[in-house]
Every structure is written in structure tokens, then in C-alpha cells.
Design a protein around this nucleic acid. Structure first.
Length: 276
DNA sequence: TACCAGGTAAAAA
DNA sequence: TTTTTACATGGT
């Protein structure tokens, strides 16, 4: 099945993160395709020669979830027009034409993934998360479905620390899985309310909540000001290399309202693939 | 070999 | 109240 997204769209650029930080068995890049479980089936996505994305199997029922995963809802035209008024961002957007951020479909996967990434490199986080997925997830073809909440809830802290989690992160992960919070219901709440609810959980601070807004809910105004990568990007692109404080990053984010999420993604990818 | 890497909360001052 | 410290692993 050929899935079309608004042009321009660059599938390989948009899925760069799944190749940069090591093998992720949940969103697996292999042989030029991205594999992932949708609706309990292994789905392969690849850039189509004619543009768009080829999706196999081609069931109609997968188009909605796959489109959402590929960030179809982002308003790239509006963003490009907005960015043109900022010479720096405008240049970045021009050089990353067709970048459309991916949205992690599963709220638990998003939050646990962020917990693993707290404080350590994304390479280390990916390796640790891979062991969690291979231990508690479910193999579907060559990929894994991320562990279900009840599967994690039943795990012991010792089982999780054996995978390389710190004692604290194991406790955060189990507390999240065992909590009463309805993670799907968060989608109905405004940004600030989502952050308030999530940061009430142990181990979920503002950074983790911001990335949940950005990469799970796809909220246009999400801007993880505390993110080290974003701080480095702001430093490189807006402060001539001088270190950016969190306050400076937040202040610079103001100028990107109402496209902060896209601006954050473009600046981060620009730092990785364009250098600087 | 150290040291740093897309934080967070608890302890110490 | 604000500042400092512990945390676990992977890459360089």
C-alpha cells in the first residue's frame, strides 16, 4: 500500500533517530525499512520511489495509526512559512526539507523510554531499553511489541535493575506501570494539565513530561527547555556557541510559539545531521 | 582511563 | 530555602 503524506516528505530523514542511537527492537531500522508492530502485526514502512511511504501489509485499518506515527498531523507548511521570518530557523528548515517528526504511539513506551534516557546518553538508553523490551516485550516477526503495562507491573525491581536500570529508574518504571493513572486519558487534557498530572508521579519531571507532550501527543507548543540536546542546539544556532541556560532556551522558545515542537525537532536534527 | 551523556529526587548546607 | 550529590551504562 502506498501512503501519501503532504509534500514535501522525506521518510529517511524523518526516521533518522532510529538509526542514530543504536538498534531499537520496537522501531527497527533494517535493510532500508522501518519495522514496527501495529495492531499486533509486524508492519514494514519504506520510502517509495514515487514519493510517499510504502506500507506492508496494506490493510486499510493500518493507515490511521501509521499516518499518526509518521506525524501526519504536523502543519509543515504553516511552520515553513513561519520559519521564513527567522533567518536561522529558516535556513535550518530549508536544509531539512521534508522532516516530519515521528510520534511514539504508546504512552507507556514514551514515558519508560524517557525514564531510561534521563541523564545518560541516548546510546546507553537505547541499549538498556532494548534489554527491557527483549525481556518483557512480545516478539512479532523481527520486531518486538513494547511491554504491556501489566507485564511491567508484575516485574520486580531486581529484574529491572538486572537489565541496567538504576535502582531509582527501576522504581520509577514499576511505579508508573502500577499506578492508577489512565495514560490514554491524558490526550484529552491541555498541555499544562498533562504536565501537572505526569510530574506528580515519581521520577517524572518537567523534561520527561515535555517530551511526552512533544513526541507522544504531538502538541504544537511542546518545548523541552531543559533538554541537553536542545540546549546545545540553541547554543550553536542562536548564541554563537556560548552555553545556553535553561532560562535562555525557554526565552528563545517564546519566539517559536506556535510552532515550538517543530522548531525543537528541527534544531535537534539539524545539530545531528548538519553538524555545527 | 577517565569523563560525559537529551534528569530526578533526596541529602546536605 | 538553595546547593550538592548519587545514580548505572555505553561510547570515546
Amino acid at each position: 500500500m502506498l501512503l501519501r503524506l503532504p509534500e514535501p516528505y522525506d521518510f529517511d530523514l524523518s526516521t533518522e533517530r532510529f538509526r542514530t542511537f543504536g538498534r531499537d527492537p520496537v522501531s527497527l531500522w533494517e535493510d532500508g525499512r522501518l519495522y514496527r508492530v501495529f495492531d499486533d502485526r509486524e508492519v514494514a514502512m519504506a520510502a517509495a520511489a514515487t514519493g510517499g511511504v510504502s506500507v506492508e501489509p496494506g490493510d486499510r485499518g493500518l493507515t490511521g495509526p501509521v499516518r499518526r506515527f509518521l506525524g501526519a498531523a504536523f502543519d509543515l507548511d504553516g511552520f515553513a512559512a513561519f520559519a521564513a521570518s527567522d533567518p536561522v530557523l529558516g535556513d535550518v528548515v530549508g536544509r531539512l526539507r521534508g522532516l516530519r517528526p515521528v510520534l511514539i504511539p504508546d504512552p507507556l513506551e514514551m514515558l519508560v523510554g524517557s525514564i531510561t534516557a534521563q541523564q545518560v546518553s541516548l546510546h546507553a538508553a537505547t541499549a538498556i531499553r532494548r534489554r527491557l523490551v527483549e525481556r518483557f516485550g512480545r516478539p512479532v516477526g523481527r520486531v518486538y511489541a513494547f511491554p504491556r503495562r501489566d507485564e511491567l507491573a508484575r516485574a520486580s525491581a531486581d529484574e529491572v535493575t538486572a537489565l541496567g536500570f538504576s535502582r531509582r529508574k527501576a522504581e520509577y518504571t514499576l511505579a508508573l506501570a502500577r499506578s492508577e493513572l489512565d495514560l490514554d486519558a491524558l490526550a484529552a487534557l491541555p498541555d499544562e494539565e498533562v504536565k501537572r498530572v505526569l510530574t506528580a508521579l515519581p521520577g517524572i519531571g518537567e523534561w520527561t513530561a515535555d517530551w511526552f507532550l512533544a513526541r507522544h501527543l504531538g502538541r504544537p507548543e511542546a518545548w523541552p527547555a531543559g533538554d541537553l540536546g536542545l540546549r546545545k542546539a540553541v547554543s550553536a544556532f542562536y548564541l554563537d556557541g556560548r552555553d545556553a541556560t535553561i532560562e535562555e532556551v525557554r526565552a528563545i522558545g517564546e519566539r517559536f510559539s506556535t510552532f515550538r515542537n517543530l522548531a525543537a525537532h528541527y534544531l535537534l536534527v539539524a545539530l545531528r545531521v548538519l553538524g555545527r
